[in-house]
Structure formats: structure tokens, C-alpha cells
Design a protein around this nucleic acid. Structure first.
Lengths: 226, 226
DNA sequence: CGATTACTTGAATATCCTCAAGGAGAGTGG
DNA sequence: CCACTCTCCTTGAGGATATTCAAGTAATCG
């Protein structure tokens, strides 16, 4: 259920590399908090995180925010079929992003069924992730949500055990459908239960997972028949 | 935001019709509540509702359920890229379903880029729907959720004004991340506000929307600056 | 170094859930 | 045809979980 996102979202310099010569590629740097593209803007490019971290989200008119996904180096985002973006994308920290012109990708895909299949695969990967997230948002408790989040980050992480969480508590809250206070309380509870510890002193952006098993049990709780 | 699902999910006897001669198609009837396929089962077919209504859902180990979508005549469901289904699908009422063998569809798609594009378009349509639903599940109040649901059904409905809701209050609740009592209370509130009325006496499966504008305002509430 | 932002924790509140009761239609079998 | 059961829906009362409001600390940034 918490499948590795890196496996779902092939690097452009990976399964799409066969077409790289024919693609119009550029790079751009974004400062912390900078908008990469806005919801309903024309989708001229697709994007890949080279360095840093990106959040994609939707807003309600009164400002309530739902983050759909976090994107880390290697992840592709902003992949659209229609004319416009369905999300806003922002850099969480200073980030480098690779941009591929959609038009050039479409042209290449037209003649290369393998590219088409890769794009479909990435879209399906997004779909699978979002569908699991619906279950979390609709039916999990706050502690289960935070445990699920940490487990997801853990499974996506390259460095075993140590998680660098570049996003704020509010970002996490808006991803999990909670308030940042509730996220904070849940993290403290996991700390008290010796399931995780904080590597940095107080800002708590670096988390060490001590007990993955316990985290997984909390994330996907079954009826406690014991 | 509440785009017409029928436009997103082309009929098999529509945009895929050019390939219909080469597709292996069959039909099947399912009784009320019958399972069409189960989560994690091999995905041998893709499905289209001919008559009736279908729900697709995920379960947590302790039985909590999240319905991902409702499917009505013309809608396609069970479209997978991987080997297995990510949802369970059940008939809400006695239903007729068209089955298309995936293998035959894949073969046709291999040689026909238009079919590939149609499949990608359907997948993207699913993705767009689910992404909007995340915002609902993560950030909307109970009344906003029920209003959004009724508006979605209204926009998908063919007969203007009159909605036939074949699903139970519990189904609606599991779609909206609520309990069936909360759904019932919200419906009663909309009735008291003269936004809808019930066409049948007490079972309340047939709903007439009296004020679409009010429903839309509740569904996508902005800060009431007035 | 002062201001700002981010995080934690406590107390009070609100929203939604749980538990419960009652009614009404659909289906079944005598 | 009519009781009987079952399912579904509504509504009320009480309770639980998460939110809101608030205070205090610490790190970051200009």
C-alpha cells in the first residue's frame, strides 16, 4: 500500500532517457516558498525535482488548503493531460527543477509507444497514491494519519532510518487533513512511545524512526483481537 | 471542479468504438450487493456499466470503508495499469455490466495510438476526480461534503432536477468520510432550507434539487464577507 | 539583536460520532 | 392477504476526537 514512489515515478533521465535527445529541457531554481505553477494555469511544461522539495495543493476559496503530494529529487510532477494544471506547485525549500516542454514530449510520444506507456504508468502511479490517500483522509484517526505519513516518508527515503522532513508541521497537517497542533501532538505521542526520536534539538525536522513495525501497525490498524 | 463524469469517461461504444471489432467483449448481470471484482485480484477485464449502479471501495483491516467512486450507465471502471485491482467493486442495485478483456484491449492499443490516448484520458479523468475528492475529504465540513455530493450527482444526472440516488445513506457516508447519521442530518438540513425535496415518501432515494445555486455555494463555500 | 516564524503544550470548545429509539417500506412465508 | 422480519432512514442525547484559542519557548533571518 505504501509503495515506493520512486518506483512509480520514473526519472526523466531514466525510462524517458531514450527520447532525451529530442526533448526540449531546461532547468530553473526556485527560492523557499516560490510558486512553480498555479492551479488553472496553462500546462506548458512537466517538471522533475532535481534538488530540494516541492508541494502541490488545492485551495478552497476561503483559504483552506489540501496538499495532494510532496515531491522529492527524481519525482515528476505537473503531468497533465488537459490544457491546464489542476494544482498549485511551490518549492518547500530552495529547489532546482528540470522543465520539459510538453509539446516536445507529446511529439516524441506520438511516435514512440514506449514513451506513451511510461506516461500512462506515471499517471497510474499518481492515481494509486491518491486513492490510498483518500482512505487515509476519509477514514483514519489523527494518530494513524501521522503514522502513515511517517511510514510513507520512511519508505520513500534513501537514507535508512533517518528522515529529513523539509516541510513544516502545517504542511504535514494540510497533507493529512488535520491542524498543525494535532500533528504536533501525534508526533509527541510517537516520541513518548519510543517509536521515533528527533535528531535536531527543537525544530524537529530530522526524525529517526526507531520502530518501523510499530509505525506500520499504527498506520494500518487492524481490530485489536489480542 | 465538478466536471461531468460522462465526458471524462468515454463510452466503450464511443471513443473506443473504432476498435470494437477487435475487442473481446461479454456481458454479465450482478444482483444487488454482488461483488464484481475484489481488491488485489488479477485485473483480467475492464468494465462498463450498462444498466444499474456500481460502487468501488477500499477497506481498512478493521472494516472501515472508503468508497472511491460511484459508477453509472456509460461509466468505465476497473481500468488498471498493473496486474491487480486496487479496489473492490460491487453492484449497488441489480446491474448489467460489459466486460472487455484487457489483453485484447492492450493488443489493440499497441497498434492504435488513438486508443492509447483514450485510455490515458480516462485515467487522467479518474485522477482529476479523485484529486478533487481529496480536498473534500481533507478540508470540507459535513454540510459542504453532502452539498458537494448532491451537486456532483446533479451534474452527472441526465434528467435535470430529479436525482435518483440508488445508494444507501451508508454508501454516501463512506464516500464522504462521514457516518450515515451525519449524512441524514445534513440532508434534513438542506430540506429545511428548501434546497431540496424528496420525491418518494420516506425512503428518500429520489431527490429533487430546488436550488442548485445554493447547493453550489454550500459545496464550495467562500469566506462570507457579506 | 529584535522581529518573525515554527513548534509544543494546555484549556476550552465545536463538530462529528456513538448509542439508542422509533417508524416506515420491502420482502417473505404462512 | 396479512403478519413478521429485515433493512433503511430519521432524530435525540451524550460523548469523543480534533479544533480553536492561547501562552511560552526556541531558532532563523534581516
Amino acid at each position: 500500500m505504501y509503495s515506493n514512489a520512486r518506483a512509480q515515478k520514473p526519472r526523466l533521465t531514466g525510462e524517458l532517457s531514450s527520447a532525451s535527445g529530442r526533448l526540449s529541457v531546461s532547468h530553473f531554481n526556485y527560492g523557499r516558498g516560490a510558486e512553480i505553477f498555479g492551479e488553472a494555469e496553462p500546462a506548458e511544461y512537466i517538471y522533475q525535482v532535481v534538488e530540494g522539495a516541492v508541494r502541490t495543493y488545492k485551495l478552497l476559496p476561503d483559504g483552506r488548503r489540501q496538499i495532494g503530494a510532496f515531491h522529492f529529487p527524481g519525482d515528476i510532477f505537473g503531468l497533465e493531460n488537459g490544457e491546464t494544471h489542476r494544482f498549485t506547485a511551490e518549492a518547500i525549500v530552495a529547489s532546482t527543477v528540470r522543465l520539459v516542454q510538453r509539446k516536445s514530449l507529446d511529439e516524441v510520444a506520438q511516435n514512440d509507444p514506449a514513451i506513451s506507456r511510461t506516461i500512462l504508468g506515471m499517471t497510474t502511479g499518481n492515481l494509486a497514491h491518491v486513492e490510498s490517500h483518500m482512505l487515509l483522509l476519509g477514514r483514519k484517526t489523527s494518530l494513524e494519519r501521522v503514522a502513515s505519513f511517517l511510514l510513507e516518508m520512511h519508505l520513500r527515503s534513501t537514507s535508512a532510518g533517518v528522515l529529513n522532513l523539509p516541510m513544516t508541521r502545517r504542511d504535514i497537517a494540510d497533507y493529512l487533513g488535520l491542524t498543525f497542533e494535532t500533528v504536533s501532538r501525534a508526533m509527541s505521542e510517537l516520541y513518548r512511545k519510543d517509536i521515533l526520536k528527533f535528531e535536531d534539538t527543537t525544530r524537529r525536522h530530522i526524525v529517526v524512526v526507531l520502530d518501523v513495525q510499530a509505525l506500520a501497525e499504527l498506520a494500518d490498524k487492524r481490530s485489536q483481537a489480542s
